[in-house]
Amino acid sequence: MIEVVDAASCTSCDICVNVCPTNVFDKTDGIPVIARQSDCQTCFLCELYCPEDALYVSPFADEAQAIDLIALRKADAMGSYRRAIGWTDDTRERRGDDRSYLLFGH
C-alpha cells in the first residue's frame, strides 16, 4: 500500500490525486495526503506518474508497513519502478525492452 508522500520532494502538482484509480489521495493547501490508505490496491501506478519520485508504495497489499524514508532514498528505491519501466529521461530506451515474446509458450 502507499506509505509516504515525501514532503521534501513533492511539488504539490496533485498528479497522484488525479491518477490514483481508487481515489486514495486528497488535495490540500499543501502537499496531497494519503486520505484512504486502506483503499490502496497496491498497483504502483501513482509512483509511475510522480515526476518527482516522491511516492513510495510498499509491496504489502493487505497491511500497512512502517518505512524508513532516509533508508529508501539511500537505497535508490524512490522512483525505482519508473526508471525500470523507462519513464524517466535517462531510461527512455527501456520502454521497448519487453522480451515477453521470448517467454510465451513456456
Binding site: F44, D98, S100
Partner: peptide, 17 residues
C-alpha cells in the same frame, strides 16, 4: 534477464522485501 526486462513490476514485491 528477460523476465526483468519484460515485467519490472513483477519484481517490486521481491526487490522491496
Amino acid at each position: 534477464r528477460q523476465m526483468r526486462m519484460s515485467q519490472p513490476n513483477f519484481f517490486l514485491p521481491f526487490d522491496r522485501t
